[in-house]
Design a protein around this nucleic acid. Sequence first.
DNA 1: AAATTTACTTACTTACTGGTAAGTAAGCAA
DNA 2: TTGCTTACTTACCAGTAAGTAAGTAAATTT
Lengths: 184, 184
Amino acid sequence: MSETREKIISLADKLIRVNGFNAFSYKDIAQPLEMKNAAVHYHFPGKTDLGIGVINEELYRFTQQTHKWQKLPEDEQLKHFIDVFRKHCHHGNICLMGSLSPDYNTLAPDMQLKVQEMANAILQWLSACLDAGRKHKRFKFKGSAEDRALLIITNLQASLLMSRVLGNTIFSRISHQLLDDILI
Amino acid sequence: MSETREKIISLADKLIRVNGFNAFSYKDIAQPLEMKNAAVHYHFPGKTDLGIGVINEELYRFTQQTHKWQKLPEDEQLKHFIDVFRKHCHHGNICLMGSLSPDYNTLAPDMQLKVQEMANAILQWLSACLDAGRKHKRFKFKGSAEDRALLIITNLQASLLMSRVLGNTIFSRISHQLLDDILI
DNA sequence: AAATTTACTTACTTACTGGTAAGTAAGCAA
DNA sequence: TTGCTTACTTACCAGTAAGTAAGTAAATTT
């Protein structure tokens, strides 16, 4: 992938997380990278293409990271997962799901599908992690691993939203209590 | 309050929940209400005034409803609270916090303050409800009532977001498991 | 009856949106 | 050296954003 393309995706990712998908324009990409509006259109003909590019990059990073953790005990894997959110919180970012799902109705169908794909990928990994962790006596929780994954992912997503409004202590409190609930 | 003003706030509330604050325009308010762009500006000079109007209305409804429930056992109160989210989910809406917090950085300072006020009002009520419910042996949970309130409110907020992307069954699964976790 | 206020409409401005068409300089390949 | 591709720039488009100034008809107050 070309360097310019990478820079555009990286900046778009940041802008989506900080201001939202509908709140940035091609100008916000072009100006900081010292190029013209149309140069961004050259790499990503439409805003939808750019959005899909950002999600694909996120999906790639996610599979790379989880693959790196796969030999670790499940509680360690979960802590790494939470740490990804912690870092985003520290940088004032929210997660892509938290940013794109409120705007979901305004997104083009292709991009809606990509958001779905991302949601499913994260939920599947987390469900599997929780299921294996319970079998290995590292987690305890009621109900199915899938439902527990939904509870945890919603905690993490919205903790970034709440942190933005009420301050970063919110994230620590949520992530701490979350772990305390399921760790043995 | 004038009838037109009420209609504008009601429609703006819907548009914020369905498309987001930055994704609707004065035209989207004026056209369906069969008035001109400038008539909306007459009632709400700036978009910020409109946003604050919507939040004030929501705060008013929230205090009215919780007041109506105050004599009920705490588990009943919590179920009513969850039902408010369930109804929004059913109508394809997300909650105001879930819609406004991703756009928080793009909001004017007065409106940011209003969003904070709303977040605090909801958290305070839920914390008090959980605290009293535990004392009356209707709830059981680890940690402080404030932290538990954060976990539950993030579950509910993000469950509406996830439902939008993956379908309404998500909400039922989360709300069910949520109650199962803390009800005695 | 006159003055004022309310609730608008008409007509507009400024700024920006995503997007496109046409051109160009540099590099590479046959 | 010709032709083609890459990575842009310049210049522009139609549409839409929030917002405003001036006018008006009807109701309300004095």
